[in-house]
Amino acid sequence: MKHITSYAHIKHRRLTANGSLIFDGSSSGSLPEFLTDAYRAQGMSYPKYHKMDTLCKLGMLCMEAAVKESGMLTEYPLDKIAIVLANAASSMDTDRVHQASISDKAAYFPSPAVFVYTLPNIVIGEIAIKYKITGENAFFVSECFDAGLLLNYLEALFHGETQAAVCGWVEADGDAAEAFIFLVEKSNKSSNFKPLNQEAITELYNQ
């Protein structure tokens, strides 16, 4: 029986994990400030974070919050943990930055440090690097959060080598910034956790 064993949200500039508030940046500041303050609030020390684009920062913050309250990374082989993420805007937030750097021929400065983030799955890569997770990868792009698609694909993965998964929705598009990460485990001794099904995923997403 597969269970959702931990989850975290970033919504309206509030970072929560398993329903508890970790950092509230909702009443003040810009999105970049929130991304820095929430990083500090979690006591993270990962200098690479500061080079990342908004999409990756949202994913990293949410992953850190979800995984902190979970034993997943020590209980499962890291090559059996999958990362499956989705969003609606792909890498549009950074696409616009790269496009702006090449639109004006008089100020033509495309940068590899920007261009590399013009792929949505880079957030999967960043999570994989930080937590040394090497299992299955997939990034889906859908108009809105699609619990059915994620559930179907998780079920298919668990049918194979996968024993645990990092799954969720990470969206960055201008001022719109949102993330939801949930961890799924193939076998867990505790019965306190939610069984993996579409209703559970949807309910947690809407929290």
């Binding site: 590399v116 880079i122 960043e126 994989a128 690097i129 040394k132 997770i133 090497t134 990868n137 080598e161």
Partner: peptide
Amino acid sequence: ASANDANHISGPSRTGE
């Protein structure tokens, strides 16, 4: 199957992990 190097975002693992 798919798998991640967990090594670098723009360069492949030197050992092809």
